[in-house]
């Protein structure tokens, strides 16, 4: 049996996580959840996800910090990271870090699935 696709969702908003998980589970994705940046990094190393959905404003380590660690860590640097952004987060200043893509919050299910699929396809 083919190994299921594993998506790590790092976001501190439980309601947002619940809704997004529902949407992602409509596809054959296994969703792993982390509620802050620190937990996100730990789970990224232990669960070896195929793709990461990353919130920006989070307690402990924020999205910027997580993205930086992903770039530094050779075992993680190949994993696509999609940043979940509120327009206000980037107000007046472009993001100072590199991620594979941005997804605007609130997340439209269609946009989310399309972008996730696009980046997973690139992997295979």
């Amino acid at each position: 049996m083919k190994k299921p696709i594993r998506i790590l969702l790092i976001d501190d908003d439980v309601d947002f996580v619940k809704a997004t998980t529902k949407v992602l589970q409509s596809k054959p994705y296994e969703v792993v959840v982390a509620h802050d940046g620190k937990e996100g990094l730990e789970k990224a190393r232990s669960e070896k996800p195929d793709l990461v959905l990353l919130d920006i404003l989070m307690p402990k380590v924020d999205g910027f910090g997580v993205a930086e660690q992903f770039k530094k860590d050779q075992s993680l640097s190949k994993i696509p990271v999609l940043a979940l952004t509120s327009f206000s987060d980037s107000y007046g200043q472009p993001f100072a870090f590199e991620v594979s893509d941005f997804i605007q919050k609130p997340v439209s299910p269609k946009d989310l699935l399309a972008k996730v699929e696009k980046h997973l396809e690139r992997l295979s």
Binding site: F16, K18, Q25, S88
Partner: peptide
């Protein structure tokens, strides 16, 4: 901005998920 938008954003995401039949 963040504190006003975050609950709305979560609510909207939930509503969209329901509306989309997820």
């Amino acid at each position: 901005t963040h504190d006003l938008r975050a609950p709305l954003s979560a609510t909207q995401s939930c509503l969209w998920a329901i509306m989309g039949g997820y």
